[in-house]
Every structure is written in C-alpha cells, then in structure tokens.
Write a protein that binds this DNA or RNA. Structure first.
Length: 239
DNA sequence: GCGACAG
DNA sequence: ATCTTGTCGC
C-alpha cells in the first residue's frame, strides 16, 4: 500500500490554498533522487457534466516495455473550483484515492500538467510528488506561465521555458514537426532527466504513453457514466 | 484597467 | 476541460 508522506486539509479557500502552496514549494527537490525505475504511473482527470463528478485514472506501466501493468479509475465529488494556479486542489483528491488502490507502487509519476512551471513554482506535479515523496514529472500540453522560443522542428529538440529570469521548464519536441509539450520538474528529478524520460515515453506519439493510457481510461469511464445516466432517465420516464 | 489563464 | 468543423496522413 502506497504511503502518504505529507497530509493536509483540502477544504481550503483560495487564500489558504495559495499560502499552502508557498509553504510546500520549499519541499520540492529539483535534483535526481531516483530509485531503480521499474514502474511508471500516469494520471489524468476529467469532469463529468452529467453527474457533476471528477473521474481520475491511474495507469501503471512497465518502465521498459511500456506495457500496462495495472489501472484504477475513481469517481469523486468536486470540492474545489477550477482556478488557474490552484489546479491541484481540484484534481488531486481523486488522484490520490486512485493511487491508494494501486498494487504496484510506481517509482515515477508522470502528470498531465505543470510542475515547477507555475506562478509559485508548485504545479500539480510538484504537489503530488511532495505529498507522496515519489519522483514526479509535469508534462503539459499547453503553457501556464513562462516565455520561450520555438524549439527546432526535430524530435528531441527543446528550448528553455523562462519566467522571471529563471528556467522553470523546457518546451520539448516529442515528435518531429509536431507541437511541443511543456516539461517541468515535479519532485526528486532534474529537468534534464525529466526530458529524457518524456522522450523515452513518447516513441510514437506527442504525449507520453502514461498520459495516453490514463486519458483512454478516463474517457471510457466518462462514456459509461453518460450511459448510466441515460438508462436511469429512461427508467424514470417508464415509471 | 485589460488580457491571460495547467485541466 | 469540452464541443465542432475541416483537413491531412496512414
């Protein structure tokens, strides 16, 4: 069973959440502290309009074959609004519930969002990494903060993502002539190593296999929820 | 004041 | 995030 390293309340207001981020940001480790990586987890979350719930999926992949070893999906109530910069307070509760049901503990977690590339240097990937004390990478599809130049068109090219005179991440081309992704440190990993892992996880597609697999699960669960609601409505009408 | 703003 | 339409590549 996966251990929670740091516990804190989740029923916070905007101001409390922001100050908690500033406090926890000091715990982020930006150097490599990686054990032998056998399993990698991918996490993704989606919102169901039909049931007003969040759906979180966690997928565990074999680090070398990239085959799916295990997966868990969790439905949960929304308890925090979407506010740019406070994303993790909305999405992490169901993600942590899902991770606690995983039998194969991952040595690396790849998140579909930012890590250090965040206004207070504490994006979702940092938050999850620090709470679990597990190495984590943020790999977002779009930018939250920072400026950058366009990376060269070839797979593996990257350019620096800069905010307030410091490099907070990299803009990495995972496929030649395909829109790049935004990689940043989550916890216990260097940016260089994070980039290497993202490249290893993208042998074929723009997004890491971890993210793709988790996204597939989330979409499947979303569709099933819609069908359940439809069946329920039909039964109601029949009565 | 205005625009920008992970999912 | 989600939705929609159009276009391109396999």
């Amino acid at each position: 069973m996966l251990k929670i390293h740091i516990q804190h309340r989740w029923d916070l207001n905007e101001k409390e959440a922001t100050s908690l981020q500033k406090e926890l940001a000091n715990q982020v480790i930006t150097q490599d502290q990686l054990p032998n990586i056998q399993y990698i987890a991918g996490v993704d979350v989606a919102y169901s309009e039909h049931t007003d719930q969040l759906i979180a999926a966690v997928v565990v992949l074999d680090a070398f074959t990239l085959e799916v070893i295990e997966s868990v999906t969790v439905k949960d109530a929304v308890q925090f609004p979407y506010l740019p910069g406070l994303f993790s307070f909305r999405e992490l509760p169901p993600v942590i519930k899902a991770l606690q049901q995983i039998e194969h503990e991952p040595q690396l977690i790849v998140c579909d969002s930012q890590g250090l590339a965040h206004p207070r240097r504490f994006g979702l990937a940092c938050h999850l990494g620090v709470l679990l004390n597990i190495p984590a990478i943020g790999c977002g599809k779009t930018r939250l903060v920072g400026e950058h130049t366009e990376p060269d068109r070839l797979r593996g090219s990257s350019s620096a993502l800069i905010d307030e005179e410091q490099q907070i991440g990299s803009v990495l081309r995972t496929q030649t002539d395909v829109k790049p992704v935004f990689v940043s440190v989550g916890h216990r990993i260097s940016l260089e190593t994070a980039n290497e892992w993202i490249l290893r996880l993208t042998p074929r597609y723009r997004l890491p296999e971890t993210t793709r697999m988790a996204d597939q699960l989330v979409r499947k669960a979303l569709k099933e929820l819609e069908n359940e609601v439809d069946v329920y409505n039909i039964l109601e009408i029949d009565q």
